[in-house]
Amino acid sequence: MGIAALAWSTAALADYRVTCESRDNRYQRCPLNQPGYVTMHRQLSNARCRKGRDWDYDRREIWVDDGCRAEFNVATYGHEHHRGSSHGGSSRHDDHKDAKVAAGVLVGAAVLGALIHNANKHDAKYDDEGYQGARHNSYVPAWMVGTFTGYNPIHNASIRMTISRDGEMTAVADGQTLRGWVNGGELHVGSEVFTISQSRDGFVTSQVGDRHNQVHYHRTR
């Protein structure tokens, strides 16, 4: 199936809400039904709930500490067809297949050229006031934040990706939009996970389980 046959827009496939409470100021973990992009919906405690300090999350759970109690939104990004598709009506099976192909548009091409690693071995995150320690999985370093462009030679598609400081990712390829999130230094697109490695002028995404699946992104702003 070619990229032109895909006709879909992003939507929240499985939004849900989790309440997590630090009782007696103790550390508490609350499991996630599905991994997703987590934001605080409503603080319920008098104690402060500061992301990275009093709460954070990863693919498995939300944690709270120091008396923080809050409701959290979890967004798992899916898609729905919103234009006429060349393959007619969609089914849940087709949607799943389309999502896989669309994820491939973003990160499924082997890009020529070697990755230029940052020669500075010092981890810059320790110089960033936004980094709050080892449990701050949702931390996004400054070099990941911004708008980047890449190219997929297999589908002959240019990709424009934007990553926010809060870790939300939006990418547009051939007029189609894909959403995901950064957590634990990795890019999550539905059920797929990709490492992100800094390069001289942007970064390279590599699919977990297939390191040859890479796309080199260059910063545009």
Rank of each mutant, 00 (worst) to 15 (best):
K51S: 05
K51C: 02
G52Y: 01
G52V: 05
R53W: 10
D56W: 03
D56T: 10
Y57W: 14
D58L: 11
R60V: 11
E61C: 02
I62S: 00
W63A: 04
W63Q: 05
V64D: 04
D66Y: 09
D66R: 14
D66N: 12
D66H: 12
G67D: 12
G67R: 01
R69S: 14
R69E: 07
R69Y: 07
E71T: 06
E71M: 13
F72D: 02
N73W: 09
Y77C: 09
Y77I: 10
G78A: 13
G78I: 05
H79M: 08
H79V: 01
H79W: 05
E80I: 10
H81I: 11
H81T: 11
R83F: 10
S85C: 04
S85H: 00
H87Q: 03
H87W: 03
G88T: 00
G88F: 04
G88P: 03
G89R: 15
G89Y: 13
G89W: 11
S91D: 11
S91Y: 03
S91M: 05
S91E: 07
R92H: 11
R92A: 11
H93N: 09
D94R: 13
D95P: 07
H96I: 12
K97Q: 13
D98C: 09
D98H: 10
A99H: 05
A99F: 12
K100D: 11
K100A: 15
G104C: 08
G104W: 08
G104F: 11
V105E: 10
A109R: 01
A110F: 09
V111N: 04
L112K: 05
L112W: 01
G113Q: 02
A114Y: 02
A114P: 00
L115S: 03
L115N: 00
I116Q: 04
H117D: 03
H117W: 04
N118E: 11
A119D: 10
A119Y: 00
H122M: 07
H122W: 14
D123Q: 12
A124I: 09
K125Q: 15
K125I: 15
Y126D: 10
D127G: 14
D128L: 12
E129T: 05
G130I: 09
Q132N: 15
G133W: 09
G133M: 14
H136K: 08
H136Q: 14
N137D: 15
S138T: 14
Y139M: 06
P141H: 07
A142G: 02
W143H: 15
V145P: 02
